[in-house]
Amino acid sequence: MLPRAIKRLLHQATLSDQSYRFMFDRPPDDEFVVIDCETTGLNVRTDDVVAIAAIKIRGNRILTSTRFEAIIHPDRELGAEAIRIHRLRRSDVEAAPIVWKVLPSFLHFIGPRPLIGYYVDFDIAMLDKYILPLVGIELPNERIEVSRLYYDRKYGDAPPNTSVDLSFAAMLRDLRIPPLGQHDAFNDALMTAMMFVQLRDLTERGIRIARQTTSPVFNPTGA
């Protein structure tokens, strides 16, 4: 694996479609894009993306009013399991555009902004699978992993042997974000965005998230 910075230089050179040069511009200040993909499975090589959602964040605003959302016609048949998880039916994806039609507007939407996600490496790897043949590069954007931010806030100072729970549900619970119904690309991205703004603020203020405390003190006199 090449270091990302070198890779970035390499891609700048290999960019086949020069109209995507903007992907290497300086990103606008304090702007981010949260992305989430729904896929047919967890294997990057064999599975396909069925839905992409992206939401911009500017400062402390989650700009849900301008957003990117697309359902994609996958190359392969949707498995029954994937249908159950995403609640996308064959007929939904049947009518959807194929991935190559969707990607240009997606790339224009995200631009050079840092990408935020929950296990974002997986989403980006999925997308790179299509983007590389299309424009000759992998996504050069900076990546921000919310579970990493969460880990730092909650377990950064934890003694060894602390059991670590980085599940999406645990993060929602700790940050007291109301669950919106998962496995919908947009909702997932939105919750991730909410987590991000809050975690970023906690980081700035140096506030940690409480870990499981010991059993409460019993005191019958109730002072």
């Binding site: 402390n60 605003r61 965005a193 700035e204």
Partner: peptide, 10 residues
């Protein structure tokens, strides 16, 4: 719904 944004306040 289309016009909604979400804001975070510390």
């Amino acid at each position: 719904r289309a016009a909604l944004d979400i804001a975070y306040f510390s």
